[in-house]
Simulated scan of single mutants.
Amino acid sequence: MVACLPGLAAVVALLLCAVGVGGTGSHSARPAARPAVQREGGPHSAPRPPIVPRSRWIDDGAHIQPPPRYDGRVSAVFVHHTDSPNGYACADAPRIIRYLYAGQIGARQWDDIGYNFLVDRCGTIYEGRAGGVDRPVTGAHTQGFNHGTVGVAAIGTFTAGTPVPRAMTDAIAALAAWKLGLSDTDPRARVRLVSSNDLARFKSGVAAMLPAIAGHNAGFMTSCPGAALTARLPEIRERAARLQGR
């Protein structure tokens, strides 16, 4: 379990899947104007699932948080795994998230955790990056494709043959259905995303047609979110579409 690892080792383990995230973690980037809250009620909206606020896992005063940055709308969700041990007690998820946060703002010198949301194996959804769960916060999760997207990290390692908890995939589907519903995006569709970084799978400026719910590996050369979780993405898309009433 992560809780049993020495502090530095835990940080290193939880950073492994952070390779390939974009550069929006810089302190120097200017925040966009704070947009209005995106409201539910469109033709294919889905209810907002329960989300644990970041105040439940972050240490008060641990880091001076710069203002968040925003995009106009969310048109895609990128799914990740944290590449950390799976046998944790769900009550330990806040501590695991703190390790990940500490590594990203420490060793990587980002301004915040890169993922917009994290989901534990019991299906609990945690707010990650600051800025408001109901706003289109610019993340730092998928190199070249951080704008107009949401990064959701499954806490654990989901390589081939690893069981993926149903509660976890149901929670990811519910979260994706809600966020994509705010822009009336079909979770089963492919959407046009323009790369902003040459280190991505697509060169900067190239428009790619990617799944509205995609694995990290769709936008960057990586095995994340693992073969087992990648295999569950079609099921997640279908469930999210049903939650939108499609």
Rank of each mutant, 00 (worst) to 15 (best):
G7E: 15
A9F: 02
A10I: 05
V12P: 01
L14H: 12
A18Q: 13
T24S: 14
S28T: 14
A29K: 10
P31N: 07
P31Y: 10
R34M: 13
V37C: 07
E40F: 11
R48G: 02
P49Y: 07
H63Q: 04
I64S: 12
R69A: 14
R69K: 11
Y70I: 01
G72T: 14
G72Y: 10
R73Y: 03
V77D: 10
S84E: 10
C90L: 02
A91P: 03
I96G: 03
I97K: 01
I105F: 01
A107L: 15
D112E: 11
G114A: 11
F117A: 07
L118N: 06
D120M: 02
C122T: 07
T124P: 02
I125W: 00
Y126T: 06
G128Y: 01
G131C: 01
V133P: 05
G144N: 12
G144C: 15
V150A: 10
I155Y: 05
T159N: 12
T159I: 08
A167S: 14
I172R: 05
L175V: 04
K179H: 11
D186G: 08
R188D: 08
R190W: 02
V191Y: 06
S195N: 11
D198A: 13
F202N: 11
F202K: 08
K203A: 15
A208L: 07
P225C: 09
A228E: 07
L229I: 01
T230L: 09
T230E: 05
E238A: 15
R239A: 13
